[in-house]
Write a protein that binds this DNA or RNA. Structure first.
Lengths: 329, 329
DNA sequence: TTGAAAGCGCTACCAG
DNA sequence: CTGGTAGCGCTTTCAA
């Protein structure tokens, strides 16, 4: 038999409403009784029934993270940071790896106060938007729920600008151009615009499609590039994982980073510094990203109308050891 | 305002207890009324209040997976498989990336029917065991809750045996010897025993400690090995990630797999076949592992006493293209 | 086949 | 400061 506040009440000899107050640390209960109640509760091994609490209260202090594909280093890091941030704010976060729709159903049934969506695919429409506050991390535009996004174009501009200032003219871009993922497309556009702006030659040659987001995709793409006629002096990789593959391919081809080839990666996470070669990277620092997402969902919970539909965060470039002035040949 | 069965009741013109029955597909309700109720419920966008249901019923059909560290390819694959398996069985799975203890608290509060623990560290003791059925995936022995484990020794024996039959004598073992993780220790023991059994020379030389479980750890360790005086003809890597790093290091050192060096990896997941070089691997196939874990927790939920404390699964060796007969020099 | 009513365990309000 | 009581939304007897 599980023990309830009524059991405590009879054990202590007070009414169970008093027990409830005491357990919630209400100032309406004398210290002495409160202490006694708490002690007995502990002795009895009392565990509050959350379902009952939730039935009465409005909030669950629970946030769901819908993340169908458990991959992407940068996402893992972000998820962990977001979790920390919620903990600080007195919330718990749980995660579902089902489809967005299923995850949403689960979270709704369990009365999560809000949900965050991590999803690469921008095409899917989500129903049931009305019932629960949602914030999405970078899933395209034109959605009817708030999105925290990154100014990818600016990020790529910053990367190209940085390399251009180091004298690089032959810059390659390795990323995933799947039309399904708006974020990748934005990165590409940003690169394209920046190249034009700095009047750098730009053709099909410096664009390599990974057609995937794993490090191996990046590896294969870079390998292909380095076997082609066009050997760049700098490469921009569009994610932590992809860049890991790029670095690998470069080294296998016996080029030295950054002497022969400079590398800049997207994803501004501290882990970039722990790679075999600490990579200079652009992107919104995870901490900033996490804080913004958490604050947004918290605001949405308090007042749904109050939250802007799209928030675009500005990226930063963090220098590490993967770039050098271009060599004069 | 969220809509309840009472709203449906008034809308349809029946009592709300009838609505409840209809929604639960009870045979006690006339087909006709049932259909009408279900239709109206849908029209109204009714969503059952889980807290209320849970308060009355005993089970939540919810399983928690406590997984503090979101990493390890093999674990991701396993988690995904387990999730599928639960879905098939009418359960939902959610995941927490907090500490085991915190995760447990969360799951308990949300009335999960059971929890699965993924944890590398075998030292931590978990409280609150009494309240909720727990199954752990390979967290050491001597715990007071059921564990589904792998016969790591047998796995390593199978790997060594396989290589020995191909004529290999110089076999290196690259893994994490952190005393914190019993599973890694078991793998090491298995290797040691097998080497002795096949009378293969065995010294500090063929043992490389990665001191970590990421691919980069494997990479560094293998690199170190290949720069040493002892160049093996075969290498055993203790996980998908570590082996990925090993393969990388081998190729960077201009050895060819499997011509120069054969590789066998632990972790029997289909993804081993998608690597740059499809790796022959040993381990319990994920499907088997997932099914076993799910069945175990389901049994534990029905009858706590019924479940064996330790279940050790037998590994299988799956041949791919990373091993060859040792070359005669 | 349907309805009434008794809770599940808890919070919150109102009296005292 | 403490106790009584009305629900939260739902399932489940028990009657009708």
């Amino acid at each position: 038999m599980t023990i309830t506040i009524k059991d405590i009440a009879t054990a202590v000899g007070v009414s169970y409403s008093t027990v409830s107050k005491a357990l919630n640390d209400s100032p309406l209960v004398k210290q002495e009784t409160k202490a006694k109640i708490i002690k007995i509760a502990k002795d009895l091994g009392y565990e509050p029934n959350f379902a009952a609490q939730r039935l009465v209260k409005k909030e669950s202090k629970l946030i769901g993270l819908a993340w169908p594909t458990l991959d992407r280093m940068a996402h893992s890091v972000l998820a962990t940071k977001i979790n920390e941030e919620f903990t600080k704010n007195g919330y718990s976060m749980i995660l579902s790896i089902n489809s967005i729709q299923t995850s949403l159903d689960i979270f709704k049934r369990y009365q999560a106060d809000g949900v965050i969506i991590f999803d690469e695919e921008s095409t899917k429409t989500v129903h049931a938007l009305t019932t629960i506050p949602i914030v999405s991390y970078g899933v395209g535009k034109g959605k009817d729920f708030p999105i925290v996004d990154v100014n990818y174009q600016k990020a790529m501009y910053a990367a190209v600008e940085y390399l251009a200032k180091l004298g690089h003219e032959k810059i390659a871009f390795i990323g995933d151009f799947s039309p399904i993922d708006d974020r990748q497309i934005e990165k590409y556009r940003g690169f394209q615009n920046a190249m034009q702006h700095f009047e750098l030659s730009f053709s099909g040659d410096n664009l390599i499609n990974t057609a995937g987001l794993s490090w191996y995709d990046g590896y294969i793409a870079a390998k292909r590039l380095l076997q082609s006629a066009f050997i760049p002096t700098a490469i921009i990789g569009t994610s932590y994982d992809i860049s890991a593959g790029i670095v690998r391919a470069i080294r296998e081809a016996n080029f030295i980073i950054p002497k022969d080839i400079s590398v800049v990666s997207y994803d501004n996470i501290p882990q970039m510094g722990n790679m075999e070669i600490p990579l200079t990277s652009v992107g919104v620092p995870v901490d900033v990203m996490a804080k913004q997402i958490v604050q947004t969902i918290l605001r949405a919970i308090q007042n749904r109308q109050d939250v802007p539909l799209i928030q675009t965060l500005d990226p930063q470039l963090t220098e590490r050891n993967s770039c050098a002035h271009v060599r004069n040949i």
